[in-house]
Design a binder for these strands. Structure first.
Length: 598
RNA sequence: GCCGUUGUAGCUCAGUGGUAGAGCACUUCCUUGGUAAGGAAGAGGUCGUGAGUUCAAUUCUCAUCAACGGCUCCA
C-alpha cells in the first residue's frame, strides 16, 4: 500500500540528551517497536497487543498463540533486536485512513490492533514503519534504530488484554534499552544493589520477621528484634499524637456483622471478606475487624457531645484483617493481617479544613523525622462517570473534595489528582513512596468522610442547642506498621537510627577473661537508660564478633579488654565509623542519651 | 483470582532414574586471641505435599500448596 512520508519523528538535535525524560521514553517506545519487530520475525503468526514505554524501559503485549515464550528465548530476542537496530532503520510516520488501516490489520489477522482501531477517529490515525515492521502508533519515535546500542529483555508476565480480567491474558515481554552499553551495565548493577535492600532479605538477615506456611500466607510473625523496632515506632508516634491532641483508644479484633452493615462496609465488601465467625449458641455472626472506624464511631456515640469538645481525635494501633487476593501478597507491603496507625477526627464542618491541614502538617513532620524525603502526594476523587459506585450525596462529595483540594493548595503541595481512585465513602489524599525496586506503595492517607457519621447517626449539640452532624477524617500516617517498616528498611538498608534500632549497642569482649567487666559495663548502661544491651562473650576472636555485629548493623560496638578494664573505659566502634574512640562509661552513656533523642 | 518461573539442611545454593552434597549457622573440643570470618570433630534433610509412570522417583507426568515476577484487585 502507498505510504506517505512525514517528518514527525523526534529531531536528531535532542538525541544526546539521555537525561531528558521525553527523549528517554521516546527511545524506549521505539525499542518496543523493535521488540515487536524481532518477535514477529522470530515467531511468525503471533498477534500484537500494545507496546508502550514505561518508567524503566518498555514492554509489548503479545499473543503467542500456543507457543510458550519463556526466559530461554530472551537471548535470541535480544540478539535479533540488536541485529535489526544495527541496520539503522528509519522510523517513518505515515498518515492513513481508518479504512486502509483496518484493511491492513484484517489482512494480517491482528485482532487486537483492529480493536484499538475501533476506538480511533478517522483522520487521526498514523502508522509507523520500521524496516518491514508496521505498527499502529501515534508516535513520536526516535529517527533511527541505530541509536539503540544496548538491549536487555528483563522479564515476562501475564497481562489481561486491555487490563480487563475478563479478557484473554497476553504475554507481556518487558525490556530496557540504552544508547550505550555502559548505561545498561550501570542499570543492571543498580538493580542488583536495590535487591540487596529488599526488606524481605534484610528482614531475615536482621532477624526481624518471618512468614510461615502453617501460620498462613500474608500473616507476618514478628521476631523479638522486629517487635522492638515496631514498638519504637509506635512509641514515637504515640508521643507525637498525644502532643497533637489525640486520645488513644482500643477495640477488639472481631465485631458483629450488624456493625459493618451499619457502617456500609458489609454491603460493599461482605462478599469478598473472610467468612463470618458464628457463635455456637446464639448463632450470631462476627467478622474479623477489617477497619477501625466503626468502632471509633461507637466510642464517639457512647456519650453526648458538645460542640465545645470538638474536634475529638481517637487514635488506635488497630490490627485489622482483610482478604487480599493470593497473587497480591508481597512481603510486608501487602499482607492479610496488619496494624494500622489509625485515627479518626470528629469535627464540626467549619473545622474541617483546619483539621485537615493539621494532619497534613503532622504527616510532613513525621516523615521528615524518619528520613522519608521523597514521597508523592495524590488526591483521589470519585469517578464522575460512575457515581453509583460511591455512597453519599453529591453535595457531601463536593464539600469533601473541595476541602482536600484547598488544603493541599494552601500548603503549596505538589499533588497529582486521580479520578476514580477515591474510597467508596469519600475522597482522599494519599502519601506514596517507592520501594527498593521502584514499586509505589501508599503509606499515609487522609480521607474525608461525611457518610459514616450519617450511618452511625453521630451528633453533637451546637451553640444553638440543636443537634448537628460531625464530619469525620480518617487518617493514618504510616498506613500500616508492616508496610511502613518494609519501606523504612529499604529506605535505610537496615541501618536504623539509634533511637529506632532494635539493638542500640553490644559489648564485645576481647577474650573470655573480660566477661565480668563486660557485664558490669552493660548493666551500668542498662540500669541508667532502661535498655537491654547484651554482651557477646562467645569463644570467638574479636574480629569475628565485630563482623557479626556489623552485619547486624548494630550502631555501637563497645569493646572491652585489658586496657579498658584497667582504665574503666570502653573502646567504641561505630557502625559507620571504624575509628574507635575511648569513652568512660559515663561519657558513653551521655553520648547514647543524645542519640536516643530525635 | 489469572499468566509465567521456582520449591533440596536454620540460611545461601550445588547435584542425580538406583533413597543426597558445599559454605555459613548450630553442638563439642582445642585455642584466650585487640577492630569484618582461628582450628578440629560432630549433629542436622521422607529433596514443599499428594497421586501416577517405572523393577526403582528427590530426579519423569499430573494435581495441590507456597514463594517470586507481573496483571486484575485493594475498606
Amino acid at each position: 500500500m502507498p505510504l506517505e512520508l512525514s517528518a514527525s519523528v523526534i529531531s536528531t538535535e535532542k538525541i544526546s540528551d539521555w537525561e531528558n525524560d521525553i527523549y528517554k521514553s521516546t527511545f524506549w517506545h521505539t525499542s518496543s517497536h523493535l521488540l515487536a519487530y524481532a518477535l514477529e520475525n522470530l515467531y511468525p503468526g503471533i498477534k500484537l497487543g500494545t507496546g508502550p514505554a514505561i518508567e524503566n524501559g518498555f514492554y509489548y503485549d503479545v499473543d503467542f498463540n500456543d507457543y510458550n515464550f519463556s526466559e530461554k528465548d530472551f537471548m535470541k530476542v535480544e540478539q535479533k533486536m540488536l541485529e535489526l537496530a544495527k541496520k539503522g532503520l528509519q522510523n517513518i510516520r505515515v498518515e492513513i485512513s481508518k479504512k486502509d488501516a483496518a484493511n491492513y490489520f484484517q489482512k494480517k489477522g491482528d485482532q487486537y490492533k483492529l480493536e484499538i482501531l475501533d476506538g480511533l477517529a478517522d483522520g487521526t490515525i498514523t502508522f509507523y514503519e520500521t524496516g518491514e515492521f508496521v505498527d499502529l502508533c501515534a508516535g513520536p519515535h526516535i529517527p533511527n534504530t541505530a541509536l539503540i546500542k544496548a538491549i536487555k529483555i528483563t522479564n515476562i508476565a501475564g497481562a489481561y488484554w486491555r487490563g480487563n480480567e475478563k479478557n484473554k491474558m497476553l504475554t507481556r515481554v518487558y525490556g530496557i534499552s540504552f544508547p550505550d552499553k555502559i548505561l545498561l551495565d550501570e542499570y543492571v548493577s543498580n538493580i542488583e544493589e536495590a535487591k540487596k535492600r529488599d526488606h524481605r532479605k534484610i528482614g531475615k538477615e536482621l532477624d526481624l520477621f518471618y512468614f510461615d506456611e502453617e501460620v498462613g500466607m500474608g500473616l507476618p510473625l514478628w521476631a523479638p528484634k522486629g517487635e522492638a523496632l515496631r514498638q519504637n515506632l509506635i512509641n514515637f508516634l504515640k508521643n507525637i499524637q498525644r502532643k497533637a491532641g489525640y486520645q488513644h483508644v482500643a477495640s477488639p479484633h472481631i465485631g458483629k456483622k450488624e456493625l459493618y452493615v451499619t457502617s456500609g462496609h458489609y454491603a460493599k465488601y461482605g462478599q469478598d471478606a473472610y467468612q463470618p465467625i458464628r457463635t455456637p449458641a446464639e448463632n450470631e455472626e462476627f467478622f474479623l475487624k477489617p477497619m477501625n472506624c466503626p468502632h471509633h464511631c461507637k466510642i464517639y456515640a457512647s456519650k453526648a457531645k458538645s460542640y465545645k469538645e470538638l474536634p475529638i481525635k481517637y487514635a488506635e494501633f488497630g490490627t485489622v484483617y482483610r482478604y487480599e487476593q493470593h497473587g497480591e501478597l508481597h512481603g510486608l507491603t501487602r499482607v492479610r493481617g496488619f496494624t494500622q496507625d489509625d485515627a479518626h477526627i470528629f469535627c464540626r464542618p467549619d473545622q474541617l479544613k483546619e483539621e485537615f491541614l493539621k494532619v497534613v502538617d503532622l504527616v510532613n513532620l513525621v516523615y521528615s523525622k524518619l528520613g522519608f524525603s521523597e514521597f508523592q502526594t495524590q488526591i483521589s476523587l470519585r469517578d464522575p462517570g460512575n457515581k453509583y459506585k460511591y455512597l453519599g450525596t453529591d453535595e457531601m462529595w463536593e464539600l469533601a473534595e473541595k476541602a482536600i483540594v484547598e488544603a493541599t493548595e494552601e500548603r503549596g503541595m505538589k499533588t497529582t489528582t486521580k479520578e476514580g481512585e477515591a474510597a467508596f465513602y469519600g475522597p482522599k489524599l494519599d502519601f506514596i513512596v517507592r520501594d527498593a525496586i521502584g514499586r509505589k506503595w501508599q503509606i499515609g492517607t487522609i480521607q474525608v468522610d461525611y457518610m459514616m457519621p450519617e450511618n452511625f447517626d453521630l451528633q453533637y449539640t451546637g451553640s444553638d442547642n440543636q443537634k448537628h452532624r460531625p464530619v469525620m477524617i480518617h487518617r493514618a500516617l504510616f498506613g500500616s506498621m508492616e508496610r511502613f517498616i518494609a519501606l523504612l528498611i529499604e529506605n535505610n538498608a537496615g541501618k536504623f537510627p539509634v533511637w529506632l534500632a532494635p539493638i542500640k549497642a553490644i559489648v564485645l569482649t576481647v577474650s573470655e577473661k573480660f566477661e565480668e567487666y563486660a557485664i558490669q559495663v552493660a548493666e551500668q548502661i542498662n540500669n541508667k537508660l532502661d535498655l537491654e544491651i547484651e554482651v557477646d562473650n562467645r569463644n570467638e576472636k574479636l574480629g569475628k564478633k565485630i563482623r557479626d555485629a556489623q552485619l547486624q548493623k548494630v550502631p555501637y560496638m563497645l569493646i572491652v579488654g585489658e586496657e579498658e578494664m584497667n582504665s574503666q573505659t570502653v573502646s567504641v566502634r561505630q557502625r559507620d565509623d571504624i575509628k574507635n574512640k575511648i569513652y568512660t562509661i559515663e561519657e558513653f552513656t551521655n553520648e547514647l542519651i543524645q542519640n536516643l533523642k530525635l
